[in-house]
Simulated assay, not measured.
Amino acid sequence: MLNATSTPEFILLGFPGLQKFWFLLFISFLTAYLFVLLGNALIILITNLDVDLRIPMYFFLNNFSFLEICYTSVTVPRLLVDFLTGPRAISFWTCMTQMYFFFFFGTTEFLLLATMAYDRYLAICHPLQYPLLMNGCACTSLALASWLSGFLTPFLSIASISQLPFNSSNQINHFFCDTGPLIELSTGDTFLAETTVFLVSAVVVLTSFLLTLTSYGLIIFTICHIPSASGKHKAFSTCSSHLMVVTIFYGTVIFMYLCPRSTRSSGMDKMISVFYAVVTPMLNPIIYTLRNKDVKRALEKVLNQVKDNCLKHRGKAFLMVLS
């Protein structure tokens, strides 16, 4: 029996039943990862370039897009390398570090989603006081609080898991170091670690979910009392993209971390993990660009500016050739 100090490494098995499709999986994950990087980077770019988008809603979206890049980069790059080289060893503390950052960014994402819902609540339910309540200092404080809370939250779970004993069976049936598959490898009493992970996950998920639900409950109540149909549509359109992201993300994570593991197979766990770790961050840029008129308008403006600059430089180069 080996503990954390004497266990040098684990093996991440990834998707052992799909090894013959490794190239297809590699291309699929690489495409999804590049889409996450480029899509979220594009949102960050246009929200910083367009003066009209320098408002609290897009300040938080800027933070959220950067967070999605970090969140996906914790797991996918190593997975891509493993597709090319086969399952490789990962040291115990590297595994703990990957797990820590995965939950750091995941917790921050929950809190940012709740903060974005609160921002929409103030904008729709208290429009006159909104500029005063959600000023630059308030936005920065809320964003910093989300990041700092996300940074501190995983320590208790990681500390409890790092004390578990492990035997020579060090193969993790997953594509990244997650709490469930790692706890299953332990040969000791895992009650404390499982309880700690469950309670921390429950507090983070349910607290942020209740805050988000409360904000949207008040938003819906306010929208129902708007007399004009156009006013209702305008109010709902400002939060529809965020509501869609919240529904997708919370649904998969609640099913993964708050439902009993005995009701799911390891294959189902991996499918759900792929969805919230890769697919959801890939869908976010699509949701926020296709369903948001302000972002689409800013994107068109940026593309037109790039096109005009290209034509201008091409014209100058043509004149230089003629001369």
Results as ranks from 00 to 15, higher is better:
Leu2Met: 10
Glu9Lys: 05
Leu13Gln: 11
Leu13His: 03
Gly14Lys: 00
Lys20Glu: 13
Phe23Pro: 00
Ser28Gly: 14
Ser28Arg: 07
Thr31Asn: 05
Ala32Lys: 02
Val36Thr: 07
Leu45Gln: 05
Ile46Pro: 08
Leu49Arg: 13
Arg54Gln: 11
Ile55Thr: 11
Pro56Thr: 03
Phe59Arg: 12
Asn63Tyr: 13
Asn63Lys: 15
Thr72Pro: 08
Arg78Trp: 07
Ser91Pro: 01
Thr94Glu: 13
Cys95Met: 10
Met96Trp: 01
Thr97Ala: 05
Gln98Lys: 02
Phe101Pro: 00
Gly106Ser: 15
Met116Pro: 11
Arg120Phe: 13
Ala123His: 07
Ile124Gln: 00
Cys125Phe: 10
Leu133Asp: 15
Leu133Pro: 01
Ala145Glu: 07
Ala145Asp: 07
Trp147His: 14
Ser149Lys: 03
Phe151Tyr: 09
Phe151Gln: 00
Leu156Gly: 02
Leu156Pro: 02
Ile158Glu: 06
Ala159Asp: 15
Ser168Glu: 15
Asn170Thr: 13
Phe176Trp: 07
Asp178Arg: 00
Leu192Arg: 09
Phe198Asn: 04
Leu199Asn: 04
Val204Asn: 14
Val204Leu: 14
Val205Asn: 06
Leu211Cys: 09
Thr214Gly: 14
Ile219Asn: 04
Cys224Thr: 12
His225Cys: 10
His225Ile: 01
Ile226Pro: 00
Ala229Leu: 11
Thr238Gln: 11
Ser241Leu: 00
Val246Gly: 06
Val253Phe: 08
Val253Tyr: 07
Tyr257Leu: 12
Cys259Val: 14
Arg261Leu: 13
Ser262Leu: 14
Arg264Met: 15
Arg264His: 15
Arg264Pro: 05
Gly267Ser: 11
Lys270Arg: 12
Met271Glu: 11
Val278Pro: 05
Thr280Gly: 10
Asn284Val: 12
Ile287Trp: 04
Arg291Phe: 12
Lys293Leu: 10
Glu300Asp: 14
Lys301Asn: 11
Gln305Gly: 12
Lys307Ile: 02
Asn309Tyr: 09
His313Ala: 07
Gly315Cys: 11
Ala317Thr: 09
Leu322His: 04
